[in-house]
């Protein structure tokens, strides 16, 4: 069985995030890391390989600048067998549709049985990439999977919806996004981290995927950001590291704000 996992490199959550005033894009030049939600998708694939389908090959697919190699290695260390890294300056500034077009083009080149994604990207909080990619590939899609079972060329997924729990069956090939309830991702052992660099890495350009550069990236974006403003609402967040007095300081804050009498 062949599983592809679409992963994203996101700014390190500890770094101060900033949107560029000129381009209105998130500045990605700082410390970056693998989207934490993607780790659940990788773990789900590893559990399939450890369980019902031992001959599974797990391919990590990402669209990111060339500098994202470390995040790709991170995904490989967690259980990927190989990676496809779409790195092309013309892809920079892609909106959701553009990103989906690039990922779909890379996925179409090969015949994957199952395409997994995390439930959302930690930076943009985008939770619709699975639906976009599935439609471009013209395959079934199930999102927010809390469990995945394989049988007879299909996946059976349990998912929580507004009215309770649905069990949904989709014929493979299909796209599944997994919720963070599906598993507790394991941290890779040191040898796996060391070994990731030696796994097959393929770096491809848009031209190699047959993607018309004018349909993706900033040039092909179907959405545009015309400006930025500050939302009304919450003030600054007070964040402190607990030194044994945090509970006292919190209570004093709540009393001062008259939340607690």
């Amino acid at each position: 069985m062949r599983i592809a996992i679409c992963v994203k490199e996101v700014p390190d959550p500890t770094a101060v995030k900033r949107i560029d005033d000129g381009s209105h894009r998130l500045v990605r030049s700082g410390e970056n890391t693998l989207n934490p939600y993607d780790r659940h998708a990788i773990e789900a694939a590893v559990q399939i390989k450890e369980g019902p389908a031992p001959d599974t090959e797990i391919t990590i697919v990402t669209m990111a600048p060339e500098s994202a190699g470390r995040s790709v290695d991170r995904a490989l260390a967690q259980g990927g067998d190989r990676s496809i890294h779409i790195a092309d300056e013309a892809a920079a500034g892609s909106d959701l549709l553009g990103t989906a077009r690039v990922l779909a083009a890379a996925l179409k080149r090969e015949s994957f049985d199952l395409i997994l994604l995390g439930q959302q990207a930690a930076d943009s909080e985008c939770y619709v990439m699975a639906g976009l990619v599935a439609e471009l590939l013209e395959v079934p899609c199930v999102t927010q999977a809390a469990s995945i079972e394989l049988a007879d060329g299909s996946v059976t997924v349990k998912r929580q919806v507004e009215t309770g729990y649905d069990t949904v069956k989709a014929q493979m090939p299909c796209v599944v996004s997994v919720s963070d309830a599906i598993n507790d991702p394991r941290y890779p052992p040191l040898p796996a981290i060391m070994g990731a660099k030696r796994k097959p890495h393929e770096v491809v350009t848009l031209a190699e995927l047959g993607v018309d550069a004018s349909t993706v990236g900033a040039a092909g974006a179907a959405t545009s950001v015309g400006g930025l403003s500050k939302p009304a609402g919450r003030g600054d967040t007070i964040v402190l590291e607990d030194d044994g007095t945090a509970a006292e300081q919190l209570l004093a804050f709540l009393v001062e704000k008259k939340v607690v009498a």
């Binding site: 949107i19 974006a221 179907a222 959405t223 545009s224 950001v225 400006g227 930025l228 403003s229 939302p231």
Partner: peptide, 10 residues
């Protein structure tokens, strides 16, 4: 939620 992006369509 620290910023609002004004997003339109092309």
């Amino acid at each position: 939620d620290s910023v609002l992006a004004h997003c339109g369509f092309t």
